[in-house]
């Protein structure tokens, strides 16, 4: 399989390793009166693979959506590579950045959704080259060549001209992954990417993501219910409850010896019998 990094594109100068890829500073998110996140602070280092776990409503998907600028930040700041994502502090005031500035940062971030969200008015290939051509300004030939490589790497080289709705759910999700990777993101957000799939095809999608994790240095922020996948891929797991980080550890520690009582009860509920090791799949 070809590697994910495109040799043709000049890599953007990357900031020093000490600058976190993602930094949340006093982040607050409210939906009306409902406070979903409050005073949230954490950092994700470059190349980190962080899995967010926790009960539904704990705010983990909201975190991904805030990074992708799909939700408006109610308070605080998010920094990508040390640069403000949507708001910055200017003369002690919290100021929203212009659309242009936001887009410059947003381009470094890709997202794969639970419901795939492929564009039905375009073929598989057109879905993948749309943003590289119209946002990054690549030539159609260049973008197509890269798209075919990516389709190869997700195992769908013969589906380039297919219509998205002709594909199975698993195939659609693989196209969606290829589409996100075509933008060469520095950060990839995976929002319950297997939750809408039949159990027997979850494996094919996770296999591809494992491969990406193994062969690239893309920073990943993952929300998933697949604990085995979380354990295989991530180097850090954060347990959320009530919009706060309850516990944070390596997957080994988190899944075998969680410290916090809330984590213990959550994992027990998710994994079933507590004495089993995870990974029945």
């Amino acid at each position: 399989m070809p590697t994910i990094t495109d040799p043709d594109t000049v890599p953007a100068p990357r900031p020093a390793a000490s600058v976190p890829a993602i930094k949340f500073e006093n982040v607050e998110k409210r939906f009306g009166d409902n406070v979903v996140l409050k005073d949230l602070n954490f950092e994700v280092a470059r190349g980190d693979r962080v899995t967010l776990i926790g009960p539904s409503g704990s705010g983990k998907t909201t975190i991904l959506r805030l990074v992708m600028t799909l939700e408006e930040l109610s308070g605080g700041y998010i920094y990508i590579d040390g640069e403000p994502l949507t708001h910055e502090e200017r003369d002690g005031k919290r100021v929203e950045l212009g659309e242009k500035a936001q887009k410059q940062i947003r381009k470094r971030i890709g997202m794969v959704f639970q419901q795939f969200n492929l564009f039905p008015n375009m073929s598989v290939l057109e879905n993948i080259i749309e943003a590289p051509v119209h946002v990054l300004g690549q030539s159609k030939e260049q973008a197509t060549a890269r798209a075919m490589e990516l389709l190869e790497s997700v195992g769908l080289p013969d589906k380039a001209d297919a219509h998205p709705l002709e594909l199975s759910g698993g195939q659609q999700q693989r196209v969606a992954i290829a589409r996100a990777l075509a933008m060469d993101p520095e950060i990839l957000l995976l929002d319950e990417v297997t939750s809408a799939l039949d159990p027997e095809i979850v494996g094919e999608v996770l296999g591809i993501l494992r491969h990406i994790a193994d062969t690239t240095d893309i920073t990943m922020l993952i929300v998933t219910h697949e604990m085995q996948f979380a354990r295989d891929v991530s180097n850090r797991v954060m347990m959320f409850d009530g919009g706060k980080v309850v516990e944070e550890a390596t997957p080994e520690v988190m899944f075998t010896n969680p410290q916090h009582e809330r984590t213990q009860s959550f994992l027990q509920a998710v994994l079933g019998n507590g004495e089993d090791q995870i990974g029945t799949r």
Partner: peptide, 16 residues
């Protein structure tokens, strides 16, 4: 909504 969100995730401009 998912279609709109996908365009944001791909950094398309509002006009695009």
């Amino acid at each position: 909504t998912g279609q709109w969100e996908a365009t944001t995730a791909l950094s398309l401009s509002k006009a695009q």
